[in-house]
Design a protein around this nucleic acid. Structure first.
Length: 873
RNA sequence: GGAAGUUUAGCUCAGCUGGGAGAGCAUUUGCCUUACAAGCAAAGGGUCAUAGGUUCGAGUCCUAUAACUUCCACCA
């Protein structure tokens, strides 16, 4: 037998074991008709990403589930991959180019993409290597990338299909435009913040009249694109003006005054300037009233030629200039401070400009409906289920999805335009001539697809769809998706409708939602705030197992959690405990295998095995419900309290004694429980359990491929275990008595017990002596036999008397007994209270009532004993 | 303006289908007891946010209220 080191040091084995697992293909998923598949698709991290605590938790949860299912005998596929992250990556490369003093335009598309791929090759694998440090047991042979040939093929197929069904269309609509990234964004990519601004009141002169119509705006520069002023149809103040026109100041354009329900007469001045090209509401009003759409802004946020004298100014300069010009003309009525919601680009955080632009959209209504139904009908279940409400909320209010991006890094939209006849061509194969006019002058669409368009196909594109691959057939639909609540709208929802649309199946049966990992103070960890904690540093210091365990314990599904090093230290301490308990067992086993001999079980053996069985049951059930935190709590509690603190101590008399039969019996149980515990813990702390498993005598193979322990009703020993709790209670009571009289722990005491459980106590005599710090046990008929100066305590199975001579202070002992008496009297009152309630006796389950009666009897007996003892003092 | 969540011991948080309040950390006391001081033993500490309701019985279910958090939303 190899010697285990005296202290737990993860550095000794984590890397070695990971390499060993890889070398022996332990993570590889095989198509095995005899097994049931279990599939998890890893949410692909961005190639620009660095591993952060959020990933660490997400990956740990997936790995824990994957390892659990693998041990349960499923053919587990956990498929890893990365996302090309169109905007984020392009942003990085553009920045790098800027530092070189060049631009993507001067580089050209082809060269830019070459640079992007090179960047991907260099940095894209970084996060993958970091995932391995955590112990992630994914099938690296199936590593995917959203822009690899497979996924790209799926994107093409999906887009073309949607196009021909009319679910993808091109149109001029109001979209969110980021002037810095110079691309359109989807609604989901816009973050709204409350920004302080102003409400500028402008007077527009009514044509052929002295009257002026006052409008209020938060974006004065857009007035240059006004094509109407709207008032509410029922607004008496403006009733006479509807149908007339105003002369738009600074521009001189004559624009109509229209009536529209959209206007809230109570807000502002009750008159709204309408700029259909630069505001979503105004766009709608413009459609209703057939207003012209005049764009006054360029893609880079500067004003265009329609802005007249303001042409070329940046939007914010233009804002100032417009206000100044209006003031100069005496048309600025007033300025009110006003805070309002402003959209910002989620990538660069500059203010988003709503503007009309020709873009590609996915028609959402027909896709949303079946996606909602699938969850209503429980084909896909959210855990916790409250997230279904959030999902519904999104899908029920969804608008068409803008999928075109004015970017180069990504899937180029597979659409060609005929330069001769104007035909739009969208087919699965690249066209060479126009099918309508035969022209060879075809030009491909310049735009790329939103990153999330390819992510939406992830559960099946990675398995080879649209090909009917064996993988797709065996592993799809997937079983569980593990992800944070923050990307339900970006990803979960889109995978749902995409999966249903393209494969006619829901992409996953369960969605396990987790919360955010926050810092010690509860703040969101972020790069800009500088409060992020690097998981790799924690692994370096404490090991991956400690990090993993700390991320899973004390966390309820879907709730945010705070990351504290105190918790990691707790986890490290727990693992150290496991390490040392294992070391203890193995030292005593001396390399010998030991058998479990049921006929030779001691009461303590039956107790720990009973507790083990209960733990197996609870942990397995919790894991099946994805209650990882509860499972981890139950397990660590069993290992530390029941196994280490009690059972290991209980076996010491046998191990150190000279009866080889007893020693062999104890070792059999110790090894059995240790082996079970290691396997139970393996999904949570894979490295250390694999390492210790290797030291177990007579073991073959690895724990990663071992069976998960199963509950065995023949080993449940419920009655025996309950009886044994009495021994534990007895030991605890003696310890407490010794502390209460300041008796040094090393000083052995004599125990006099008045009890009916003589057999049970005798059977555990040595354990009691050792754990309670006693020299002898004597059975008595009454406390008087124990002598004069005694301290006493009533427990479940015995009335304890300890003669402590000089240590006994009669006054203190009386006080202690009185306090105990008060407690017991309280208990009796509580039981009486319940039992005297006729409704309780009549309606509560019989067992409960019986239990209550039994308790009353027990406490009455205790009361009598304590009173008797008090009198005798 | 909608929606969701949170409120339990000094701190951070568990508490599944309603049946005598739990853990870790921190605190106090005593222990280097031949696996472990990254440890052992003992102890203190909670009208489970508030007010009602349902129930024999509520931390748990229902309704309001308050505070905090997050997400969504076009009032110019």
């Amino acid at each position: 037998m190899k010697e285990m080191h005296t202290t737990y040091d993860p550095k000794d084995f984590e890397d070695r074991l990971y390499a060993d697992w890889m070398k022996h293909n332990c993570f590889r998923a095989e198509i095995d008709p005899k097994k049931v598949p279990f599939t998890i698709m890893m949410p692909p991290p961005n190639i620009t990403g660095q591993l952060h605590m959020g990933h660490a938790m997400d990956e740990t949860m997936q790995d824990t589930v994957a390892r659990f299912k693998r041990m349960q005998g499923y053919s587990v596929l956990w498929l890893p991959g990365t996302d090309h992250a169109s905007l984020a990556t392009e942003h990085k490369i553009v920045e790098a180019l800027r530092e070189e003093g060049t631009t993507k335009e001067s580089l050209g598309r082809e060269e830019f993409l070459r640079r992007a791929w090179a960047w991907k090759e260099k940095y894209g694998g970084r996060i993958i290597e970091q995932l391995k440090k955590l112990g992630s047991s994914c099938d690296w042979s199936r590593l995917a990338f959203t822009m690899d040939a497979r996924c790209s093929r799926a994107v093409r197929e999906a887009f073309v299909n949607l196009y021909h069904k009319g679910l993808v269309y091109r149109g001029s609509r109001i979209i969110n435009w980021c002037p810095d990234c110079r691309t359109a964004l989807s609604d989901e990519e816009v973050e709204h913040t409350e920004d302080a601004g102003n409400f500028w009141h402008f007077a527009y002169p009514v044509k052929d009249s002295e009257e002026k119509l006052v409008v209020a705006t938060t974006r004065p520069e857009t007035m240059l694109g006004d094509t109407a002023v709207a008032v509410h149809p029922g607004d008496k103040r403006y009733a006479g003006l509807v149908g007339k026109t105003v002369i738009l100041p600074l521009v001189g354009r004559e624009i109509p005054i229209v009536a529209d329900e959209y206007v809230d007469p109570a807000f502002g001045t009750g008159a709204v300037k309408i700029t259909p090209s630069h505001d979503p509401n105004d766009f709608e009003v413009g459609l209703r009233h057939n207003l012209p759409m005049i764009r006054v802004m360029n893609d880079d946020g500067t004003m265009n030629e329609n802005a007249g004298e303001f042409c070329g100014l940046d939007r914010y300069e233009a804002r100032k200039a417009v206000v100044a010009a209006m003031k100069e003309r005496g048309l600025l009525v007033k300025i009110e401070p006003h805070t309002h919601n402003v959209g910002h680009c989620h990538r660069c955080h500059s203010a988003v400009e709503p503007l009309v632009s020709k873009q590609w959209f996915v028609k959402m209504a027909p896709l949303a409906k079946p996606a909602i139904e699938a969850v209503v009908k429980n084909k896909t279940k959210f855990t916790p289920d409250r997230f279904a409400k959030i999902y519904f909320n999104w899908l029920e209010n969804i608008r068409d999805w803008c999928i075109s991006r004015q970017l180069w890094w990504g899937h180029r939209i597979p659409v060609w335009y005929c330069e001769d006849c104007g035909e739009t061509i969208c087919e699965k194969e690249d066209p060479s001539v126009c099918p309508k006019c035969g022209s060879a002058h075809l030009k491909q669409e310049e735009d790329c697809l939103d990153t999330w368009f390819s992510s939406a196909l992830w559960p099946f594109s990675t398995l080879g769809w649209p090909e009917k691959t064996p993988d797709l057939d065996y592993f799809y639909p997937t079983d569980v998706l593990v992800t944070g609540y923050d990307i339900i709208p970006f990803w979960v929802m889109r995978m749902m409708f995409s999966g249903i649309e393209h494969t006619e199946k829901v992409p996953f049966r369960d969605v396990l939602i987790h919360g955010l990992v926050r810092d010690e103070k509860g703040k969101k960890m972020s790069k800009s705030a500088g409060n992020g904690i690097d998981p790799l540093e924690i692994i370096e210091k404490y090991g991956a197992d400690s990090l993993r365990l700390s991320l899973l314990t004390g966390v309820a599904p879907g709730n945010d959690t705070r990351f504290t090093t105190a918790k990691v230290e707790w986890a490290r301490n727990f693992i150290n405990k496991l390490w040392n308990a294992s070391r203890f067992v193995l030292m005593n086993a001396e390399g010998a295998e030991a058998e479990l001999n049921k006929r030779k079980f001691t009461p303590a053996d039956r107790w720990i095995i009973s507790r083990l069985m209960a733990t197996i049951r609870e942990v397995t059930l919790s894991l099946q419900k994805y209650d990882l935190g509860i499972a981890a709590d139950k397990l660590t509690d069993f290992v530390w309290s029941d196994f280490c603190d009690w059972y290991v101590e209980l076996t010491k008399p046998a191990l150190y004694g000279d009866d080889p039969e007893k020693k062999r019996g104890a070792l059999g149980v110790l090894l059995f429980v240790l082996d079970s515990v290691l396997r139970l813990l393996h999904p949570f702390i894979p490295f250390v359990t694999e390492e210790i498993y290797g030291y177990l005598p007579g073991k073959r193979g690895r724990i990663i491929t071992a069976d998960y322990p199963r509950y065995d009703s023949k080993l449940s020993y419920k009655k025996e275990a309950a009886a044994f709790e009495g021994i534990i209670g007895l030991i605890k009571a003696v310890r407490a008595i010794k502390v209460s009289v300041n008796c040094p722990p090393a000083k052995k005491v004599n125990l006099y017990l008045e009890t009916e459980a003589k057999a049970l106590i005798t059977a555990n005599r040595n354990s009691i002596l050792r754990l309670a710090g006693a020299s002898d046990i004597g059975f008595v008929e009454s406390g008087a036999e124990a002598g004069e100066k005694t301290v006493s305590q009533v427990t479940e199975i015995a009335h304890i008397f300890i003669p402590l001579g000089e240590l006994v202070n009669l006054e203190e002992e009386r006080a202690r007994l009185r306090k105990e008496l008060d407690r017991v009297i309280g208990e009796i009152a509580r039981a009486e209270g319940k039992l005297s309630n006729k409704s309780f006796v009549a309606k509560a389950p019989k067992k409960l009532v019986d239990d209550e009666r039994a308790k009353r009897e027990k406490y009455l007996d205790m009361k009598e004993r304590i009173e008797h003892q008090l009198e005798s003092l």
